[in-house]
Structure formats: structure tokens, C-alpha cells
């Protein structure tokens, strides 16, 4: 449990610090304008990275369980509820 807390703390720091930095750094110098394309597409790609990782986990799980728990799988065994009027 402690390890998990530490892990999440580390992750939080890794995510938060760059965000705070970019928040204070952007548009600071006069004459330099923020490029909205960079900001928006960066956000987009960050979100897509997360979305595709989560998507891979979710759809991977579903594909695996559809393969593993199909009734024709060699190791398929009846569930506890079969034969009852659940």
C-alpha cells in the first residue's frame, strides 16, 4: 500500500510540475506570441495517448475474455448458476 502511495505521488509530481511550469512560462516574453496550434494540438496528442492506452487495456481485456470465456474454450466450465432458475 505504501509503495502504491509513493508511486502515485511520484506520478503526480511528474504530471503536475511540467503543467505548472508551462502555465507560468507561456507568453512571458514580450513580442513572443503563444502559438495556439502548439497548445491545442499538444493537448490533443496528450489526451489521445491516454485514450489509446486506456482503450488498449479495455478492449484488450474484452478481447481476451471473449476468447477465454467462450463456451468452446477447452477450459470452459459451467458457472455456479447454470441449471438454476437465477
Amino acid at each position: 500500500m505504501k509503495k502504491l502511495v509513493v508511486l502515485f505521488l511520484v506520478l503526480a509530481v511528474i504530471v503536475v510540475i511540467p503543467a505548472v511550469q508551462s502555465a507560468f512560462a507561456a507568453g512571458a516574453e514580450p513580442g513572443e506570441y503563444l502559438d495556439r496550434r502548439v497548445v491545442i494540438w499538444n493537448l490533443f496528442f496528450k489526451m489521445m495517448t491516454i485514450a489509446f492506452v486506456v482503450g488498449a487495456v479495455v478492449s484488450g481485456t474484452m478481447i481476451w475474455q471473449c476468447w477465454r470465456f467462450r463456451e468452446s474454450h477447452p477450459k470452459a466450465k459451467p458457472t455456479a448458476y447454470e441449471g438454476t432458475d437465477w
Binding site: 474484452m62 475474455q65 471473449c66 470465456f69 467462450r70 463456451e71
Partner: peptide, 20 residues
């Protein structure tokens, strides 16, 4: 849905395929 399908014995009839 995922937790329901876990450790089950799924019959992939047409309705189940569409639902998944």
C-alpha cells in the same frame, strides 16, 4: 459488463455478439 463476463461461460449467439 466486463466483470459479468469474467469467469463466465459465454455463448456467442447473435445477440451476444451485437451486445459485446
Amino acid at each position: 459488463f466486463i466483470a459479468t463476463m469474467w469467469n463466465s461461460r459465454i455463448k456467442f449467439s447473435t445477440p451476444m455478439m451485437w451486445a459485446v
